[in-house]
Amino acid sequence: MSQFLQVFLSGLATGAVYALVAIGFTLVWQAAQTVNFAQGEFVMVPAFFVLIGMHWLGLSFWVALLFGFAVSIVVLGLLFKKLIVEPILPHGGITLIIATMALGILLKESAKEFYGAEAQPFPAMFPGDQIDVFGAAVSLRDLLNLVISLGIVILLTLFLNRTRTGRCMQATAQNPGVAEILGVDVKRMVLYTFLINAALAALASFLITPVYLAKFSNGETLGLIAFIAAIVGGFNQIRGALVGGLLIGVLDNLTATYVTAQYRAALPLVLLIVIILVRPQGIMGTSEGRAV
């Protein structure tokens, strides 16, 4: 029992971080009808911004964290939108997908060339104090990961449903043409989406890197898992991404513990295929394409 609880709770904590990345996928999908294949690298890079702040600029950890957050929003939000998405999007989603792939290589190779190929330790925002939950060792950090992710989903949903800007963003996602006619500043709304995506990626980076360590190649695995989580949960729903992330985090651990370790990575993929066959809109998704 304690073994089950252990892997279940750890899986939830890891899954919560996957969920944050997966939400980014759904947001970008809604804003631009494209998949950001550099999303994993978007989670890898902010940790390096913080390390640069600490080790090259001599900032203290918390200041460096703010610095990293700000730089991430500018580089991964604003610049990404202006320099890559805006010029390429009119030529179609596939071209943009390819461009994000190239961007992924660019970010990965840059991190490696300018900060080294070896993993770097990364300080944690929260203490790793252990709590004993019926025989399972859970760290405070794990619990906070979970709380923060849930909090983000609730806040984001409230923002999208209850504020004017949020509703404008939803309108943009559903039908940019009509939204424009109704006086919504579509360009600005799309920009907001990309800024939120960058902020979520940075947050996910700060939460997972203390355990996962800062390494140039981190994005490959994280990006793929989060992408699968987003599809499984439902590509057009924020709460779907949350459910998808948590589900994959838990299932991965349960498979490795009770079924097969060699094929642990296969289960989410099989799940994905089954879901597409049975319920193509995802577990939480709605079949009508683009509601937030």
């Binding site: 390429i88 071209t95 390819i98 461009a99 190239a102 961007l103 290589i105 660019l106 190779e109």
Partner: peptide, 8 residues
């Protein structure tokens, strides 16, 4: 990779 992005 930068050249590919520019190309696209």
């Amino acid at each position: 990779s930068a050249l590919v992005i520019v190309m696209l």
